[in-house]
């Protein structure tokens, strides 16, 4: 497999891998490192890629495992990954803060979810995977995926509503 072929193969889902990594690891740099590592692993095993039925699902599973491993080792070292994606507020500062504030709440609420629910919400709502694909990536059955997804969505809605009504009701 040549480099161009590999890039063609990887291109459709490399952003998905990155977004999943970022969902789990929070920091952009960490997520970039993880994505790079995943792509390198794929490249180094490029001879075997033909044998995989679904490279994308396989890569997503790899990403999930890698990120969870990283989180585990980070926790063992008692290091917290800090949220370090500061945005540039230069243009119409006030307006942007107001608009972004409530949207930022969503990301904070997502961060509070358990890892598995995070992954499922990410794959379903943002990457628009089918339940069967999510089940394959997570090595779970579809019913369990649905239950976890429903739980996550309800948590997000409740917390958002609470934040939204804060000071009003």
């Amino acid at each position: 497999m040549t480099q161009t072929n590999f890039v063609k193969l990887v291109l459709p889902f490399k952003d998905k891998v990155f977004r999943l990594a970022k969902r789990l690891l929070v920091s952009r740099e960490e997520a970039e490192d993880a994505t790079q590592e995943i792509l390198m692993k794929l490249w180094n095993h490029k001879e075997k890629i033909k044998d995989y039925k679904n490279v994308e699902a396989f890569s997503m599973t790899m990403t999930k495992n890698l990120c969870l491993d990283r989180l585990k080792s980070k926790q063992a070292q008692n290091l917290k990954i800090v949220h370090s994606n500061y945005q540039d507020y230069n243009i119409s500062l006030q307006k942007q803060i107001e608009a972004n504030d409530s949207v930022d709440w969503v990301s904070k609420i997502m961060e509070e979810l358990p890892d598995q629910q995070k992954i499922i919400v990410q794959l379903r709502d943002i990457e628009e995977y089918g339940y069967d694909e999510i089940a394959k990536v997570l090595e779970m059955n579809e019913t369990a995926v649905r239950v976890a997804l429903s739980r996550a969505r309800k948590t997000i809605r409740e917390k958002l509503t609470k934040k939204h009504n804060y000071g009003i009701k």
């Binding site: 949207v103 969503v106 990301s107 958002l160 509503t161 939204h164």
Partner: peptide, 8 residues
């Protein structure tokens, strides 16, 4: 609240 969720 949903609006913010889907915007996010």
């Amino acid at each position: 609240p949903y609006k913010y969720l889907f915007q996010y």
